[in-house]
Amino acid sequence: MIVIGIIACEIGFWAVLAAGLGARYLLRMRRLSSVLLLCVPLLDLLLLGLITWDLAVNGATADFAHGLGAVYLGFTVAFGHQIIGRADGWFAHRFAGGPPPFKAPKSGPAQLRYEWQQWGRMLLCAVIATAVIGLIVWLVGDTSRTEQLVGWIGRVWIVTGIWFVGWPLWLTVSGGGNARSQPERASSEGQ
């Protein structure tokens, strides 16, 4: 049931996002668009309620899906605004003559800043997922039923650590965030 809830929330996220942006750029109904886009966080609350109800009220034993749901909540809170902003930029460009959509920087200090910001979002995701799991464990009050859920805390922090080492730290230490990219350096050295 939780897997169905996660899938429904993901489908709902994209459906509400598309409806909100369609109302804004295709129908020119800005107020309706704002109302629809404000409904996106309600999906997170519904999923949190479903997970909590299943464990605390229904008496279920936590499994893989409950932990995945908690991490999904952390992800949507940490990255959801950015995803909505990028989709909005694409819609504005495609349907309203707006500027080209954002592209992640490929080199230089801008790339370094971007990678640190993205990792900061992942860090926020891990903190939120940990807090949600902790709250649910506390509400359920039965460690034998929430053991699988607690295992997700380690998983999300391992991913956060790998992301830290593999991207922002590596880029910082390797000098990938220098002011000029490699092709620019090569062309200036050849002159």
Results as ranks from 00 to 15, higher is better:
residue 1 M to P: 08
residue 3 V to I: 12
residue 4 I to C: 09
residue 4 I to Y: 10
residue 16 V to F: 10
residue 17 L to T: 15
residue 18 A to M: 13
residue 21 L to H: 05
residue 21 L to A: 12
residue 21 L to K: 07
residue 22 G to S: 06
residue 31 R to K: 12
residue 32 L to S: 08
residue 33 S to V: 01
residue 36 L to V: 11
residue 38 L to I: 10
residue 38 L to F: 12
residue 40 V to G: 05
residue 49 G to M: 10
residue 50 L to M: 11
residue 50 L to Q: 11
residue 52 T to L: 09
residue 57 V to I: 10
residue 60 A to F: 03
residue 64 F to R: 13
residue 65 A to M: 08
residue 67 G to N: 07
residue 67 G to Q: 05
residue 68 L to P: 06
residue 69 G to W: 02
residue 70 A to F: 03
residue 71 V to Q: 07
residue 74 G to D: 08
residue 74 G to L: 05
residue 76 T to I: 11
residue 77 V to R: 00
residue 77 V to H: 01
residue 80 G to H: 08
residue 81 H to M: 09
residue 81 H to N: 11
residue 83 I to A: 14
residue 84 I to S: 12
residue 89 G to H: 07
residue 89 G to F: 06
residue 90 W to E: 11
residue 91 F to R: 00
residue 94 R to G: 07
residue 102 F to I: 05
residue 106 K to G: 12
residue 108 G to P: 00
residue 109 P to W: 13
residue 110 A to F: 08
residue 111 Q to M: 15
residue 115 E to T: 11
residue 116 W to A: 06
residue 118 Q to C: 10
residue 119 W to Y: 13
residue 120 G to K: 09
residue 121 R to M: 15
residue 123 L to N: 08
residue 126 A to S: 15
residue 131 A to G: 11
residue 132 V to W: 01
residue 134 G to T: 00
residue 135 L to H: 04
residue 137 V to G: 01
residue 137 V to C: 06
residue 139 L to N: 05
residue 140 V to Q: 01
residue 143 T to Q: 14
residue 146 T to C: 04
residue 150 V to F: 13
residue 152 W to S: 06
residue 152 W to I: 00
residue 155 R to K: 13
residue 156 V to L: 13
residue 156 V to E: 09
residue 161 G to Y: 00
residue 169 L to V: 13
residue 172 T to Q: 14
residue 173 V to C: 06
residue 176 G to T: 02
residue 177 G to Y: 00
residue 178 N to D: 11
residue 179 A to N: 08
residue 180 R to C: 04
residue 182 Q to A: 09
residue 185 R to N: 03
